[in-house]
Measured scan of single mutants.
Amino acid sequence: MQRVNMIMAESPGLITICLLGYLLSAECTVFLDHENANKILNRPKRYNSGKLEEFVQGNLERECMEEKCSFEEAREVFENTERTTEFWKQYVDGDQCESNPCLNGGSCKDDINSYECWCPFGFEGKNCELDVTCNIKNGRCEQFCKNSADNKVVCSCTEGYRLAENQKSCEPAVPFPCGRVSVSQTSKLTRAETVFPDVDYVNSTEAETILDNITQSTQSFNDFTRVVGGEDAKPGQFPWQVVLNGKVDAFCGGSIVNEKWIVTAAHCVETGVKITVVAGEHNIEETEHTEQKRNVIRIIPHHNYNAAINKYNHDIALLELDEPLVLNSYVTPICIADKEYTNIFLKFGSGYVSGWGRVFHKGRSALVLQYLRVPLVDRATCLRSTKFTIYNNMFCAGFHEGGRDSCQGDSGGPHVTEVEGTSFLTGIISWGEECAMKGKYGIYTKVSRYVNWIKEKTKLT
Rank of each mutant, 00 (worst) to 15 (best):
I297Q: 07
N113Q: 14
G442P: 04
C128M: 03
T190G: 13
S411L: 15
C134N: 03
L14S: 06
A9N: 13
D378E: 10
T271H: 14
F87L: 02
R83A: 14
I284S: 08
E82R: 04
M8E: 11
V263N: 02
L319T: 02
F196R: 08
L321F: 00
C28L: 03
E434Q: 14
V153N: 06
K387S: 08
Q219C: 05
C435H: 04
G355T: 07
T458H: 02
V199E: 13
S70V: 07
V326I: 11
D338T: 10
A279G: 04
H267M: 03
I275Q: 03
S385W: 14
H302P: 03
L319R: 00
V153D: 04
H34N: 14
E288S: 11
D322M: 03
P177M: 01
I297R: 09
A265M: 02
C155V: 00
P197H: 14
P101N: 05
Y391K: 10
Y450L: 00
S354Q: 10
Q57P: 01
K440Y: 08
Y441G: 02
D150P: 09
H282R: 08
R191L: 15
S448P: 02
L130M: 13
D212K: 08
R162S: 12
L189E: 15
N104C: 02
S49F: 04
T29N: 13
C108E: 01
S107L: 08
E129A: 07
Y312S: 04
V248F: 09
G363F: 06
C145V: 02
W431T: 08
S156W: 14
M6D: 13
F224W: 11
C108P: 03
D223K: 08
G355A: 13
T85F: 07
Y47S: 11
F176C: 04
I309E: 11
I262M: 02
E286M: 11
N135P: 09
G398R: 05
G253H: 08
E35W: 07
K126V: 09
I262D: 01
E285K: 10
V199K: 11
G106M: 03
T381Y: 09
G421E: 05
R43P: 01
N36K: 12
A366D: 14
R43K: 02
H415Q: 01
G13E: 07
I309H: 11
E231K: 10
V377W: 03
S220R: 07
A207L: 11
V195P: 11
I17V: 10
K347P: 01
W431M: 14
C170F: 00
E456S: 10
D33F: 06
T158Y: 05
A192G: 12
D110V: 07
K126G: 08
C134D: 03
P197G: 10
F196I: 13
K457N: 15
K45N: 00
M437G: 11
W240T: 01
R294D: 01
T133I: 08
V243R: 11
A337R: 01
N222R: 11
E193T: 10
Y352L: 09
V278H: 06
L23G: 02
V451E: 04
G179M: 00
F144G: 02
Y352M: 05
I210E: 15
P235A: 10
C382W: 03
K311D: 04
V419L: 06
K311R: 14
S217W: 09
V353L: 05
L189V: 12
S184I: 15
S187H: 08
R62N: 02
E340I: 11
L372C: 11
L460W: 10
D200N: 09
K234R: 12
S99V: 11
G253R: 10
V30N: 14
S25Q: 13
S70G: 07
V195E: 12
T264N: 01
V269A: 10
T225D: 15
T218F: 09
V243N: 05
N147E: 14
L321R: 00
G413C: 08
S107R: 10
I112S: 11
N138T: 06
Q185N: 11
G21T: 14
K68H: 09
G403E: 15
D410M: 15
I428G: 00
A37H: 03
P333M: 02
T461E: 12
G398S: 05
T133A: 12
M437D: 11
V183I: 13
M6T: 14
V377N: 02
V447K: 00
N310F: 04
T276C: 05
T186W: 08
P235G: 06
T445H: 05
G442M: 14
C134K: 03
K188S: 14
E193N: 11
I15C: 11
N310C: 05
G160L: 01
S169A: 13
A307C: 05
A26C: 13
R3Q: 12
M437N: 08
K146C: 06
G105S: 10
D322G: 06
A266Y: 03
E10T: 08
C170L: 00
N306R: 09
T84D: 02
H400E: 12
V30Y: 14
V202T: 14
L318I: 05
D232F: 09
K51M: 07
K247P: 13
P414G: 11
I112V: 15
N258L: 01
Y441R: 03
V183H: 07
I428F: 05
F123W: 14
V248D: 08
K293V: 14
E270Q: 14
S187M: 12
K51V: 11
I17T: 06
I334N: 00
H289E: 14
G421Q: 08
T225M: 08
E286R: 10
Y312N: 07
C141G: 00
L52M: 14
P324L: 04
E159Y: 08
V199N: 15
S204Y: 15
G412N: 05
D200I: 12
G355F: 14
R180A: 05
Y115Q: 04
L19F: 13
R162D: 09
L327A: 04
A250K: 07
G105R: 06
D322F: 02
V30M: 12
L19C: 10
V377T: 05
F238Y: 04
V174Q: 09
E259R: 06
K168C: 05
I336F: 05
Y201S: 07
L130A: 08
T225Y: 11
C157I: 00
E456V: 07
C178L: 00
I429E: 13
W356P: 04
N203M: 08
R140C: 07
G50C: 03
G229C: 10
N222W: 07
L244G: 01
C268D: 00
E171W: 07
G254S: 01
Q143R: 01
G427W: 00
F196E: 14
V242R: 00
T271A: 10
F144H: 03
D232T: 14
S430N: 10
E35Y: 14
K188A: 15
T209A: 12
R83D: 10
K274H: 12
P333R: 03
E73K: 00
H400T: 15
N393F: 04
I309F: 10
C69D: 00
A250D: 06
I112Q: 14
A380Y: 12
D322I: 02
I309C: 06
T461L: 08
Q96E: 15
K126F: 12
P197E: 07
A192E: 11
E98R: 11
A307L: 07
L244P: 00
F123M: 06
C128R: 03
F55K: 09
